[in-house]
Design a protein around this nucleic acid. Sequence first.
DNA 1: TTTTAATAAAGAATTATTTCTTTATTAAAA
DNA 2: TTTTAATAAAGAAATAATTCTTTATTAAAA
Lengths: 213, 213
Amino acid sequence: METKKQIVSSTPEPTIRRLPMYLSYLKNFLSDGREYISAPHIASDLRIDATTRTKDLAYIGISGKPKIGYSVPVLINYLEEFLGYNRNDLAFLVGAGNLGTALLKYEGFKNTGLRIVAAFDNDTRKIGGKIGGVEILPIDKLRNMIERMHIAIGIITTPEGVAQSIADMMIGWGIKAIWNFTPAIIKAPEGIFVENTSIYSNLAVIINKIQNQ
Amino acid sequence: METKKQIVSSTPEPTIRRLPMYLSYLKNFLSDGREYISAPHIASDLRIDATTRTKDLAYIGISGKPKIGYSVPVLINYLEEFLGYNRNDLAFLVGAGNLGTALLKYEGFKNTGLRIVAAFDNDTRKIGGKIGGVEILPIDKLRNMIERMHIAIGIITTPEGVAQSIADMMIGWGIKAIWNFTPAIIKAPEGIFVENTSIYSNLAVIINKIQNQ
DNA sequence: TTTTAATAAAGAATTATTTCTTTATTAAAA
DNA sequence: TTTTAATAAAGAAATAATTCTTTATTAAAA
């Protein structure tokens, strides 16, 4: 008869997923030189109901002025703060293949507060080199590095087959969150957060839409 | 006073997003040589409530046998059929940079029914060559190719700044669905489906979880 | 056979999310 | 000032999705 109810009242995940979209949109808007923006305006451009958007912004603690709207720069600041772009979250990446390379070279992370501080691979031709300015180290250095640097985030871009064993190692050595880009289903103990970026899930939605006209 | 209610009763999107996960899991399970699997078994491995899973499977039209469970090969067939893996959906990809290259080389698509038949870029060093067996063509060939081959899916892996203009072109020439890997917010007319694979959204969820312990 | 236990299916309840409706606020116009 | 219109905020309702509960099914054991 335990109470399972979580009294967290945290921001809904759909809201969190929308926030980066607002941010991107607002930065474009600002670069056009306009300083205030209204909810209906954002809503129609982003094809999201105006109320949904208002509530999303209320979650991050910002309010607008009637007859005027929201101050775009203030909105951007709040969003960046909320999204942790002013933090400095360190991550390791394992698997410097095509996808891993793409992430290591990804300019977009520069603004986000996420910093990939090292990458690991077992290909001796890659080890010792750098990709996107990040050093490639042998897998057997992983343990020591995680423990020494207190890295919280582990990014897995390995082949599917080894993803779980990499995750197990990472978790055992202190990683708190895993960002899994493989199709593997990562099993992790309570308290370890696993976020999957699944190409297949996205593809499934597209194909389903096409199949049903 | 129009009726907005859509009486489609289609499969819920969360369900569709989970299906590839089931498929991956079941293929592993099958390779272990076991032929039947029960709902509670899948559920506990995948950390999804057993009822949710049963309903997911009911959507795709498969039922299990009491006391036995589901036949794994049958389940796999149904899933692959439902997910369109037996179809042959053709796609073009625009932007053969790091991410584009990763997708072109992605072995995983081989089983999915999605075939990227050509890629487009404006880098003359890439044009004429092949990546992952796919030819790289100049952007100005895009129109003719879309119209001639009746391609339905356009994948955008360009820099953010040009994503909308590429989308506009694709849509104008007959593309029905856009898979956008850039952070740009693609505006598209009614009837054109846009699926975003947003690195930022996934990152936002991770950072939010870490911030709240 | 009959009973039992594992299991699926159906339905109800709950929770989460979105959308709709009303009310309050306020800058600008009269 | 006072009024108006654009807007946000708050609350209610509707919808969607998940989880819980009960019922039905059936292979295997007794």
